[in-house]
Amino acid sequence: MHGIGFDIAHLLAGSLVLVSLTMLYQDRLYALLNTYTLHAVVLGLAVAWQARLQDAPHLYITAAIALLFKAGIIPIALHRIVVRLGIHRAIETVSGIGTTMLAGIGLVGLSFAVMLRVTEGAALVAREDVAFALSVVLLGLLIMVTRRNAVSQVVGFMSLENGLILAAAGAQGMPLVVEISVAFSVLIAFIVIGVFLFRIRERFDTVDVRALDRFRGERR
């Protein structure tokens, strides 16, 4: 079944990984948020295509949720948070862009090396999809690890969740309940993290997580 359907699924999931890699080197918050919006849109398209491919109408709901919440509400809310917090300045990455990108490429390679071997025997679409999804998850973690700013850590977390949803959509037979609960858990995580962001700022006048470390009196 190497038809056009598989190619398009491949293309969309691959684009998601590409956007994740792009997020790695965005050094301004607005740019990062816009890239994240693009990430969510691509995710919505990928899931919708999976819905068509698998003939599973409930996946359209997942795609709609992804588009509505992740490409709509959450980026807008994050924009507003950034404005209200007054942090339009550049975000610093921990290591250089080159190193980060190299690490990201290595992670993508690793996830393919693992997934294609582990999932032998599964349907080809699902295999490719899961491998891409794992790359997205690892890249999201990498974003979280390399950033110091709490908002960009949140964005990394959100893109990680996108990877999970991609995996859920690719695995055939995943019940709708699971998908919806994943979607809502992301939303709730977002709300909680948003609340925390403001609490952190209220107390420390910054959302740089180093302030938290200083507050805990830790060595470095």
């Binding site: 921990v94 996830s111 973690l141 979280m144 690890v145 997580v209 470095r220």
Partner: peptide
């Protein structure tokens, strides 16, 4: 007494090592 980022990095490193 590690920082939050160090903890995240530890989790991340462990995950990568397991995958490797």
């Amino acid at each position: 007494f590690l920082t939050i980022r160090r903890y995240l990095s530890l989790v991340f490193a462990l995950l990568v090592i397991l995958l490797l």
